[in-house]
């Protein structure tokens, strides 16, 4: 058919595998490069002093990030899990479900700065929360909601159909089946997905920019949900853009701490999942 000389199947396979291998390995390069540059440039800035000091160090930002992540999880979990249960266990294919799925996909595609502006308009201004931890966490919860829903649905789908059938066939209602069989068995997966999803909250800047993050606070730690706070991403953003006198090494060190925090969360989720996988067979 072709005028080209035929290559042997073995050669073309070798070429194909080589290309696939290169594509896969290329993924490692930017990760490795970022980590290397970060540690190289921030290495000498990293110190216990930097991490633990309240005035000069990152402790308020670490605490703020932790509070933001925890609160985001707390707000997004009930809505996200409930929505996932509805979609995977109750909803029958139809216009409403298509609409909900379309909304989830679109929500996931909205740029984070738009969430920030939306949060400013809704939580800060309209609901008069002011710029505070609660408003920022509400905004962040919206941002992670599609991720939480998708991850929870995935976890619910992992529960074998035959367990649902066994329960229903014993005369359980659908709700009893969900409560006693589906949710307990999906919970480990849901929690893992939740941790990974709210990890995003630790790494975003734009959504908290207008809704609660401040620099140079009189009270470095928020004393209530109504207080402003400082987060690692926000501090990094301000240090990098508005304070030329801040040492380069310190900025990179801040970045390293932020990355370490996010990696630690993902690692925790992975370990959690692996342990539960080992404990469960069905």
């Amino acid at each position: 058919m072709s005028a080209l000389p035929r290559t042997s199947p073995k050669v073309s396979q070798a070429v194909a595998f080589a290309l696939l291998w290169i594509a896969a390995v290329v993924v490692i390069v930017p990760v490795a490069a970022i980590l290397a540059i970060m540690l190289l440039k921030g290495g000498k800035g990293l110190s216990w002093e930097l991490i633990s000091s309240v005035e000069e160090g990152l402790l308020p930002a670490i605490a703020g990030t932790a509070a933001l992540v925890a609160l985001t999880a707390l707000i997004s979990a009930p809505f996200g899990i409930a929505a996932a249960v509805y979609l995977s266990e109750y909803a029958r294919a139809g216009t409403l479900v298509r609409l909900i799925r379309l909304a989830i996909v679109n929500l996931a595609g909205v740029p984070s700065v738009v969430y920030g502006l939306f949060g400013l308009a809704l939580f800060v201004t309209l609901l008069q929360l002011g710029r505070c931890l609660l408003a920022a966490a509400c905004t962040m919860a919206l941002l992670v909601l599609p991720l939480v829903i998708t991850a929870s649905e995935e976890a619910l789908r992992q529960v074998p159909r035959r367990l649902r059938e066994a329960s229903l066939a014993l005369g359980a209602t659908r709700w009893q089946t969900i409560r006693k069989v589906v949710l307990p068995n999906a919970l480990p997966g849901i929690i893992t997905g939740l941790i990974l999803s709210v990890g995003r909250a630790a790494g975003e800047t734009a959504p908290i920019l207008f809704t609660g993050a401040f620099y140079g606070l009189t009270h470095p730690f928020p004393r209530s949900l109504g207080d402003p706070f400082v987060a690692l991403t926000y501090k990094l953003f301000v240090d990098a853009t508005e304070f030329p006198h801040v040492e380069e090494a310190e900025k990179w060190a801040t970045a390293a701490v932020l990355v370490a925090l996010v990696v630690a969360m993902n690692l925790a989720a992975a370990v959690f999942r692996a342990r539960l996988r080992r404990a469960r067979r069905w």
């Binding site: 035959r162 367990l163 059938e165 066994a166 069905w282």
Partner: peptide, 10 residues
């Protein structure tokens, strides 16, 4: 009902 594959709850 008893199903084709045994389906004990975990």
């Amino acid at each position: 009902m008893v199903f084709q594959t045994p389906n004990p709850f975990p």
